[in-house]
């Protein structure tokens, strides 16, 4: 086998593995969420399909695939078909820049455990998370339904607002690590994770990504109580499933990013690097679920108030303080 074809094969295997793990993890995150929410409410949660209900995601998948695929009358057919994919694909793509383990050596070759070692990984992430807005907005608009449209508009405004504080909360990270490359950012946290230097940025980032993946308490675009199901009201079957799975992929990816930016990435004592990365990612995901079980939904004006008048100025002040501190050092 030539060196080139070995490279290609290794890359394909890595890609396939990442894809498989992310999709499986997303499906099981749905299951985990249902379980944890059930425990919060003193219930048992799904436990009928398979041992401990572990086959529940499979049953859900079969159910979604066999459901009728309804397109509402007057809907913009092509955009309607396209929107779920636009919501799910950017989420998966973001993962391609996250380093999920220390570089390994296979067949005499250094294999970095990241799909694509981009030198502007952080900017790539910000750009793609802006594209994810289109899935929500277009899905809401193409459905030809009041609720979906309102949900889409809300989603648009919310995601754009919180993009700002999210991006600003990451600037100190770049200042500390002198790089946009996620591998470099992880390398800079070899001894101390950035959460120690940047607790405020971490909190801002955590709140912003909660809003970014439209989760309680920021699930205004879906808001069952007022908008039926928001932007995906009219979706059924696997198209709805794609929105749904996209949301959970988003949680995993954003959890992975929180781990990469603030919790030291795959660095950690004793356990292998990939295990550390998974543990940190799942801890953030668990926090999301826990928060969903705890907090009520914000009002829309409170949401905007928090985003523009609290988080964004705080993030700016944090950048100033970090700059001042770096200049003094």
């Amino acid at each position: 086998m030539t060196a080139f074809s070995l490279d290609i094969t290794l890359f394909a295997v890595k890609l396939g593995l990442v894809f498989f793990v992310i999709l499986t993890l997303a499906a099981y995150l749905v299951f985990a969420e249902r379980k944890v929410l059930a425990w919060v409410q003193d219930r048992k949660g799904p436990n009928r399909v398979g041992p401990f209900g572990l086959l529940q995601p499979l049953a859900d998948l079969i159910k979604l695939l066999t459901k009728e695929d309804v397109v509402p009358g007057g809907a913009d057919r092509w955009l309607f078909y396209l929107a779920p994919a636009m919501a799910a694909i950017p989420a998966i793509l973001i993962f391609s820049v996250i380093p999920f383990g220390a570089p390994v050596n296979i067949f005499g070759r250094d294999l970095p455990l990241v799909v694509s070692d981009l030198n502007v990984g952080l900017l790539f992430f910000l750009a793609l998370s802006s594209i994810a807005v289109y899935g929500v907005a277009i899905g809401g608009w193409a459905s030809n339904s009041k609720y979906a449209l309102l949900g889409g508009i809300r989603g648009l405004a919310q995601l754009i607002s919180y993009e700002l504080s999210m991006g600003l909360s990451l600037v100190p990270i770049v200042m500390l690590s002198h790089s946009f490359n996620l591998a470099d950012i992880v390398a800079a946290q070899k001894t101390v994770p950035f959460i120690v230097y940047q607790p405020l940025a971490f909190i801002i980032f955590l709140l912003s990504i909660t809003a970014e993946c439209k989760r309680i308490p920021f699930d205004l675009p879906e808001a069952e109580g007022e908008l039926v199901a928001g932007f995906h009201t009219e979706y059924s079957g696997m198209r709805f499933g794609l929105f749904f799975v996209g949301e959970y992929i988003n949680i995993i990816v954003l959890g992975g990013l929180a781990a990469t930016f603030f919790l030291g990435g795959w660095h950690g004592p004793l356990l292998p690097p990939t295990v550390w990365f998974s543990l940190k990612t799942l801890a953030v995901a668990f926090f999301f679920i826990w928060m969903r079980g705890t907090l009520p939904r914000l009002r829309y004006d409170q949401l905007m108030h928090l985003g523009w008048k609290v988080l964004t100025p705080l993030a700016l002040v944090n950048i100033l303080i970090t700059g001042w501190w770096l200049a003094l050092k």
């Binding site: 919060v40 003193d42 826990w290 705890t294």
Partner: peptide
């Protein structure tokens, strides 16, 4: 808010009534 998180955590560890 933290009090709310504490309550839900306590319930998570409680036996389900199902």
């Amino acid at each position: 808010i933290l009090g709310g998180f504490r309550v839900t955590l306590a319930h998570m560890l409680r036996r389900p009534v199902t």
